[in-house]
Structure formats: C-alpha cells, structure tokens
Simulated assay, not measured.
Amino acid sequence: MPDFFNTLLFGIYPYIALAVLILGTVVRYDREPYTWRSGSSQLLRRKQLVWGSVLFHVGVLVIFFGHLFGLLTPIAIFDALGISHGAKQLLAIVAGGVAGIMAIVGATLLVHRRLFDARVRAASSPTDTMIIVLLWIQLALGLLTIPISLQHLDGEEMVKFMNWAQGIFTFNGAASAYVADASIIFKLHLVLGLTILLLFPFTRLVHMLSVPLRYLWRPGYQVVRERNRRAAQTRLPAE
C-alpha cells in the first residue's frame, strides 16, 4: 500500500472516525433523544432472536473488552507482569476465536431473521440491516486473522497493532507506520472497525451507551405501591 494511503487510512481516518463518534453521539443525544433506542422487534420470531442476541452480545462484549485492554494497555505493564508477547498472542487467538465464533453464529441468526422474515424486514430500517451486515463482515474478518496470527506466535505482530493503537491515542504522527506492512486482512479489519465507529452515532448501536448498570447494585427486593394499596383499602365501602 502506498505511503499516502497508509497514512490516510491509519493515521488520519482514525481521528475522523473518533471525532464523528464523539460529536455525533453527543448531538444525537441532545437533539434526538427519542431516537436513542434499540428498536427491538422481539415479538417477532422471538426464539431465534433470543439465541442470536445472547450469542452475539456475549461474544461481542468479550471481543470488545479484549481489544480495548489488549491494544491500549501499555506494553511495559505486560512486561512488568511477566506476560510474554507470545503468551498474550496465544490468549488472544484462543479467547478471541471462541468469542468470535459465538458472535458470528449469533450475528448469522440475526441477519437471517432480519433479511428472510418478511415481518421483521418490514419493521426494520435500512440502517438496522446495514449495521448488522457490517458487523457480520467485521466478525468474519476478525476470524480470518487467526490463521495469520498463528504464523506469528512470537507475538511481535500483535505488538505492531498495540503500538499503532496507542500511537493514535497519544497523537503520534508516525503511528500509521507500525501497520504499513501488515496483512491486507488485518488492514481491512481495522478500516471496517473504524467505519463502524464512524457510523455508530447514526445507528441503533447508540443504545449500548444506555446500559442500566444501576440494576447491578440495587436491592434484591422492592416494596411496590404499599402506600397506594393501603389507601385504596381505606376507601373501600363497608359491606
């Protein structure tokens, strides 16, 4: 890939994608709060939705946090902990492979349901269909990187992507050089991932930011309408 395009795609495009992600999300939440939802069609073909959704979400969450911590954790921390690059590479292959298979099986069920069920298709917007198809392609590209990674079990290939990702967030102008000689599969995976971030504010994916985490620490029991129930009893006429 010529240096110009490599710099454009992996040195400039990441900042465009991140800027649109942040600003677009804020503007949408401020100006169109009623569109901030997942738009579920759960009443239609529910069994396939449940299986597809569970497999997809669990797999994607593992992949997301694996990429987040794996790419953005400074290499010095892994070295200080005694985790070799090869061990980290092998962990990424195994954990990422299992999570990737779960996610793509789930995504396949969701894509099939959305494209081949007339009722679901009628209830879907073009962006709903587009984003789930793009996510399926992204998962497929991620799985295709595994055979390539198996050829670099020393972990040095992964170090390139760690340096690239950390270079982007530290505004290293030469960050794109780290992935200049990477496999085309990895490059497609990176570009599509950035494109999904770019499209994030304009799709149903924004509902990811509204996860009700407060339910994790709320009390295990609730008193529901106790006062109203007693008030209603006092108003009942005597028999």
Rank of each mutant, 00 (worst) to 15 (best):
M1Y: 11
M1T: 10
Y15S: 05
A17Q: 06
L21I: 02
L23Q: 09
V27G: 09
Y29I: 11
Y34V: 12
Y34D: 15
W36I: 09
R37S: 14
R37E: 12
R37T: 10
G39L: 04
G39A: 05
R46L: 07
R46S: 12
K47E: 10
V50R: 11
G52T: 02
G52M: 02
L55K: 06
V60D: 05
G66P: 03
I75W: 15
I77T: 15
G82C: 05
I83N: 03
S84P: 04
L90A: 15
L91D: 15
V98K: 06
V98N: 04
V98S: 07
M102D: 03
A107W: 00
D117N: 03
D117F: 00
R119K: 13
R121D: 10
P126F: 02
I131D: 02
V133F: 03
L135T: 08
I137A: 15
I137N: 08
L139K: 01
L141F: 07
L144Y: 05
L144N: 03
P147D: 06
I148H: 04
L150N: 07
D154Y: 00
M158I: 08
V159N: 05
N163H: 11
Q166I: 07
I168R: 01
T170N: 12
N172P: 00
N172I: 01
G173K: 03
A174H: 15
S176D: 15
V179G: 01
D181K: 11
A182W: 01
A182E: 11
I184P: 08
F186M: 09
V191C: 06
T195R: 02
I196C: 01
F200L: 06
R204A: 01
R204M: 02
L205Y: 06
V206Y: 04
V206S: 09
M208L: 14
L209P: 01
V211D: 08
W217Y: 14
P219N: 05
G220C: 08
Q222Y: 14
V223D: 13
R225Y: 12
R227I: 12
A232T: 11
A232Y: 09
T234R: 14
R235D: 11
P237L: 08
